Amino acid sequence: MKNKRYFPLYVDLSDKNVVVVGGGTIATRRVKALLLFTRNITVIAPKMTADLWELGKLGKIQIQPRPVKKSDFSMAYMVLAVTNNRELNEEIYHACKEEGIYVNVASDKDLCDFYFPGICLKDDVVVGITASGMNHKKARAVREKVQALLEEIAKDEESYE
């Protein structure tokens, strides 16, 4: 099957509820990226990284240190399934599809309504980078170059003032 291209859509998440199921390194990276756009993040996992616990203590995210339940998605705009359990991730996918909730399953690009992009951010410019779930190293290399370019442009703008 030919790989699908996903349309880049920029969405205001400031008042949307995001549920992240999983508490590991990938979940932590995604939560930190999401915090640039919303504070309405709930992380659900029996075990979480120290960074997630700290973000919870600081009140930046809601943490639920327990297994996920289907009812956890009732108010979600989007859900990220970032566990190391493929079967659980697939259950989350199906539960979200039944409810019409956008879902991203980190372990299976075919179970994603959206890809979680590499994000470049400088002032009011936001650039999302994806390689359509095919080549994460390539996407990272592009993201790093675009971020460097944004930094360079910002320095140039300062010299014009």
Results as ranks from 00 to 15, higher is better:
residue 158 E to D: 08
residue 9 L to F: 10
residue 53 W to M: 15
residue 129 I to S: 12
residue 80 L to Y: 12
residue 25 T to E: 13
residue 105 V to A: 05
residue 63 I to M: 10
residue 108 D to Y: 05
residue 6 Y to V: 01
residue 30 R to E: 05
residue 135 N to T: 03
residue 74 S to F: 09
residue 103 V to M: 10
residue 152 E to R: 07
residue 23 G to F: 11
residue 88 L to V: 14
residue 30 R to W: 08
residue 35 L to R: 05
residue 38 T to A: 04
residue 148 A to R: 01
residue 146 V to H: 00
residue 10 Y to K: 04
residue 16 K to T: 10
residue 65 P to F: 02
residue 67 P to N: 10
residue 155 K to P: 00
residue 105 V to S: 03
residue 68 V to L: 08
residue 41 I to V: 09
residue 98 E to I: 11
residue 27 A to W: 11
residue 104 N to P: 03
residue 158 E to A: 10
residue 21 V to Q: 03
residue 154 A to I: 06
residue 50 A to N: 13
residue 21 V to T: 09
residue 81 A to G: 01
residue 34 L to V: 05
residue 42 T to K: 14
residue 160 Y to Q: 00
residue 59 G to M: 14
residue 69 K to Q: 14
residue 140 R to I: 06
residue 90 E to C: 13
residue 54 E to V: 09
residue 53 W to L: 15
residue 36 L to V: 02
residue 118 G to D: 05
residue 48 M to L: 11
residue 33 A to E: 08
residue 97 K to Q: 15
residue 96 C to Q: 00
residue 81 A to H: 01
residue 33 A to H: 02
residue 76 A to H: 08
residue 29 R to T: 04
residue 159 S to T: 00
residue 133 G to A: 02
residue 54 E to T: 15
residue 2 K to F: 14
residue 91 E to R: 15
residue 139 A to I: 02
residue 45 A to N: 01
